[in-house]
Design a protein around this nucleic acid. Structure first.
Length: 121
DNA sequence: ATTCTGACA
DNA sequence: TGTCAGCA
């Protein structure tokens, strides 16, 4: 199928589909005329890409995890056990990010109270 | 009519 | 990501 068909079947825009290819996430075949040629398998791949992206992972990680996914990521494909370590690093990164957001939040709280004091004069 | 690549008031 | 250009 061509790009517009895959777009309809996945709800993903042709623009995004081409972007996934640019990032090496989705690799379609090419027709003699140079048009991208997708299969039913690609439909499933796009769904997985959406899930991973929605989880906050960047395209580099999606690229490595994609070949390790089975049944929408509930299980890991054999030979991908090493990804667990990567996921744990990801969790630690998220933890530090959460901590940073807490700091920004408190800073805003301070600014807000200062602003109210000013307006209250 | 549709897709492709490249680019961005 | 959208969108427009200039092709095929």
């Amino acid at each position: 199928m061509r790009i517009s068909a895959l777009a309809r079947r996945t709800g993903v825009s042709p623009r995004a589909l081409r972007y996934y290819e640019e990032k090496g996430l989705l690799v379609p075949g090419r027709t003699a005329g140079g048009y991208r040629d997708y299969t039913d398998e690609h439909v499933e791949t796009v769904r997985r890409i959406r899930i991973l992206l929605a989880a906050g992972l960047n395209s580099d990680m999606v690229r490595e995890i994609l070949p390790c996914m089975v049944d929408d990521g509930q299980f890991l494909a054999p030979g991908c056990e090493d990804l667990i370590a990567t996921f744990e690093r990801e969790q630690r990164r998220i933890d530090t990010q959460i901590a940073e957001l807490h700091d920004v939040r408190s800073a805003l709280t301070g600014i807000i109270s200062a602003g109210k004091a000013f307006a209250g004069r």
